[in-house]
């Protein structure tokens, strides 16, 4: 089968129309979970089927797509989704946040501030913020309808009672425009402040749960907290070892079995951009990028059997 056998961006036009309706409704009611008829996608649930459908419904041929997974452009999930749209939509792709018009993301918001006109598409595993507090879907819908969000604070209360502080570090619940409590997908709470007042359109797609929700540009998003335990962002107390950035979200990488470790920006584009401008961290000069490292294996694999 050739790639031309698919409609532009894989989904048929009727499906895209249905998803666009859901997106428009989501934008009209910020933070409200709009049900939609999620389709089977050629990838497993949990790999971003919701995000892929939202992206497919948003893409036009002129778009330039960026896909990130935990901040990185070169991990399996990101590579496979980017390749999927290269093949089925033929759109240009990029790794640069500033050049992209549509960014599909899993678990991160790029460090580089977004601009008006960009669309950020989140992959959402569980859209319902109240799910683990109230198992009945009928009841959680009613709670959203009637704005009964006391239970959300019970969760935060439990955190403080147990750990002395709000220990929820990702998927930190937020209130949108003073109305709906929303799960921001499993982004670290470090990224929560970027949700609010963002000039880009933010769309959330949950494929298995069949829900779409959205934040239109410049939406007010407040992280829930207590008066005497205010919301605080958190990150590893280090600088990036490659680019030296002090204010970006870091991944911890174990480098050997002697306790060696390094901290690197989880946003690979941000980190690479800083190094290109000459910034360097503790290990900056001598380190290869993960991509250079991966490429260095090419041509080695077939020969490894005979290497001994």
């Amino acid at each position: 089968m050739t790639d031309q056998a698919y409609n532009f961006a894989y989904l048929d036009e009727q499906t895209k129309r249905m998803i666009r309706r859901a997106i428009l409704k989501g934008i009209a009611v910020p933070g409200y979970q709009v049900p939609f008829a999620s389709r089977e996608m050629p990838m497993p649930y949990g790999w971003g089927t919701g995000g892929v459908q939202v992206t497919a419904a948003c893409l036009v041929p002129e778009d330039r797509l960026k896909v990130i997974d935990q901040g990185a452009d070169d991990t399996t999930n990101a590579v496979s989704i980017r390749r999927f749209f290269q093949r089925t939509a033929g759109v240009a792709t990029t790794e640069a946040t500033t050049e992209a018009t549509v960014i599909q993301t899993r678990h991160r918001i790029p460090e580089t501030p977004l601009k008006a006109g960009q669309i950020l598409v989140y992959q959402v595993p569980i859209p319902e913020p109240l799910r683990f507090l109230e198992p009945r879907e009928t009841e959680t819908r009613k709670m959203h309808e009637l704005e009964e969000y006391g239970l959300m604070h019970v969760k935060l209360y439990e955190d403080i009672a147990r750990h002395g502080q709000i220990a929820t570090s990702y998927a930190y619940p937020v209130k949108v425009e003073g109305r709906y409590v929303m799960d921001p997908s499993p982004i670290p709470k470090f990224d929560n402040p970027k949700l609010s007042g963002n000039p880009a359109i933010q769309l959330f797609g949950a494929g298995r749960e069949q829900r779409i929700y959205a934040l239109p540009p410049w939406t007010e998003v407040v992280s829930l907290d207590f008066d005497d335990h205010p919301f605080e962002t958190s990150k590893a107390p280090h600088d990036c070892d490659l680019c030296g950035a002090q204010d970006s979200y870091l991944d911890e990488v174990i480098t050997d079995d002697q306790g060696g470790r390094m901290f690197v920006c989880s946003d690979t584009d941000f980190c690479a951009g800083r190094r290109a401008k000459g910034h360097a961290g503790r290990l900056g000069a001598g380190q290869k990028s993960s991509k250079t490292f991966a490429n260095s294996f090419e041509g080695i694999w077939p020969g490894t059997e005979g290497a001994r």
């Binding site: 006391g150 239970l151 604070h153 209360y157 907290d225 207590f226 005497d228």
Partner: peptide
């Protein structure tokens, strides 16, 4: 505390 939080108490 749940009922307190349900009616708007926000001071831990």
């Amino acid at each position: 505390g749940e009922r307190l939080m349900a009616v708007g108490a926000r001071h831990y």
